[in-house]
Simulated scan of single mutants.
Amino acid sequence: MTAFSMHFSKRNTFERLLRRLCLMLLICAGVPLHAQAAAELSQFDVERTSEELTLTAQLQFELSPPVEDALLKGIPVYFRVEAEVLKERWYWYDKSLASVTRQYKLAFQPLTRRWRLSVGTGSGSSAGQGLALSQTYDSLPVAIAAIKRIVKWRIAGPGELDPAGRYRFDFRFMLDVSQLPRPFQIGVLGQSDWDISVNRTVPVGPEAPK
């Protein structure tokens, strides 16, 4: 009986160690342990006129509990939007004709119990480095609604595009974990709760005849 008990105990210990090892391997491999926080586009309109090319879009996504918990603990969360117009070239890399970015910084203010949203715009990778506009909101859903809605965002101006040319329009939206505090970045690496992103590519035809 004693020999059987020792054998049973050793087997249980081995199984527990095996389960822990499997869990560690899943974490290291970046296998999501929570439901993925995906994003979608319910509206996506690229409008081209003789004066400019603009984008109007409506994003759909929900913040996961870990993201909301980080916000409530005073950790700002950043979202980034990128839009680019490219000319496709069969003989070389596609040529970028216009590129703009927009960065949202969302932060909770414990003293006032309000949400502060700062928006920085720029070209290329310069979003957030220049002038940023800020606004406060009474609730998180209202602040997130402001991030989800893009209205008449100017992507290219006069002279940047050939009126008769055809182009490719690339769009990307994401929760930018690279802006989180360094120790926090390590903790969220590979966790799908922080993977909020969506991409869209559409053709852009020539200007409509007047």
Rank of each mutant, 00 (worst) to 15 (best):
A164I: 10
R168D: 11
I147C: 05
R154T: 08
A132W: 01
F169E: 01
Q185C: 07
G122A: 06
F171M: 04
S123V: 13
A127Q: 03
D162V: 09
A156K: 04
A146P: 05
S123D: 13
L180A: 04
T136G: 10
A146D: 07
F184I: 10
A164T: 15
P183H: 08
G124V: 09
P163Y: 12
F173R: 03
Q135G: 14
Q185L: 05
D138V: 08
W153F: 11
Q129E: 15
R166C: 11
P158F: 09
Q185K: 01
A145P: 00
R182N: 09
Q185I: 02
S134V: 05
V177Q: 02
S178E: 10
R154D: 03
R182L: 14
P141N: 03
P158N: 11
V151I: 12
E160Y: 08
R168C: 08
F184E: 11
V142S: 09
D170T: 12
R149G: 05
Q129C: 09
S123I: 09
S178F: 08
G124A: 09
D170L: 14
P158H: 12
L131K: 11
A127K: 01
R168P: 10
D176R: 05
L175G: 02
F173Y: 06
K152S: 15
S139D: 08
R172G: 15
G165D: 00
L175F: 00
S123A: 09
L175I: 06
A146W: 04
G124T: 04
V188W: 01
E160L: 12
I144N: 02
K148L: 04
K152V: 11
L133F: 14
G128W: 03
S139R: 05
A156N: 03
G157A: 08
G130C: 03
I147D: 02
A145M: 03
L140W: 03
G165T: 02
R154F: 01
Q135T: 13
D176S: 06
R172W: 12
Q135M: 11
